Amino acid sequence: MRVGLLVTCLVDLMRPGIGFAALRLLESAGCEVVVPNGQTCCGQPAFNAGDRKAARALAEKLLGEFEACEYLVAPSGSCAGMIRTHYPGLFADDERMRGRVQALSSRSYELTDFLVTVLGVSEVPGDFRGSVTYHDSCSGLRELGVKTQPRSLLARMPGVELREMEECEACCGFGGMFSVKFSEISGAISARKCANIQATGADAVVLGDLGCMLNIEGRLRRLGDERTRVLHVAEVLAGEDA
């Protein structure tokens, strides 16, 4: 199975280890993984800012890089959600592109969803030991239905104890430009999220979107919490969480 890995621009710039963890998980499941060298952004920031022209240009670029693959997989609910949920509408008035875009969108998955739903993975290479609490990132949860998939994979790891936090489905306050334009509201939301994380006493909070990770980790450290680790689910599952 030939799988295209969309590393995502944020992972590439800020925490490339997540990309390598995703690669390890896909390869360990028997996939032939293709990582296009020229890949950049899926166009989500431009789309959310209302710049549809820029979003379409980036979407066309991505389409050319990935449409030859059987599947597109991203370690990000927000990027996968952009492709699966919003690309078709972005090209709804373009007869030339519409069919190609819909075809790729239907084959695009968030990482844990792909591992569980498409591949039926029964074991993962990671050996994490400790307690974790899981934050459901908004895009993955609400646009793609990613909820049970990461938890089922974590449950296959004998050393992991899952402690559910209160309001696990509530936003962390990031929301891309929302955290910049409405910083006071964003700060209050993230403070509530971090209080719920800390109340579990878990060793780590685990999640599937780097934007949320950066936001939560930044708030925890500003609160003086140097103990709680903030990990991408791919890092835990792949054993690259050191």
Results as ranks from 00 to 15, higher is better:
87 Y>S: 10
45 P>V: 07
76 S>A: 13
50 G>D: 06
86 H>P: 15
54 A>W: 00
90 L>Q: 03
84 R>A: 15
66 F>I: 11
47 F>N: 02
78 S>H: 10
52 R>Q: 00
60 E>D: 06
77 G>M: 05
60 E>V: 03
68 A>F: 09
88 P>A: 01
58 L>N: 07
61 K>S: 01
81 G>Q: 00
49 A>Y: 00
73 V>Y: 07
68 A>H: 14
60 E>A: 02
45 P>A: 01
66 F>C: 09
76 S>D: 01
44 Q>K: 06
75 P>F: 02
85 T>K: 15
48 N>Y: 03
80 A>M: 07
74 A>H: 15
75 P>V: 13
74 A>Q: 13
64 G>K: 05
50 G>E: 01
87 Y>C: 06
79 C>P: 14
46 A>Y: 00
47 F>S: 03
77 G>Q: 05
66 F>P: 14
57 A>Q: 11
80 A>C: 14
50 G>H: 12
48 N>I: 13
65 E>N: 10
76 S>F: 13
54 A>R: 15
45 P>E: 02
82 M>H: 04
67 E>V: 12
52 R>S: 11
52 R>C: 00
62 L>A: 03
61 K>F: 09
69 C>R: 08
85 T>E: 06
70 E>D: 05
60 E>Y: 04
73 V>E: 10
46 A>M: 11
56 R>A: 10
75 P>M: 04
56 R>K: 05
75 P>C: 02
88 P>G: 04
71 Y>K: 15
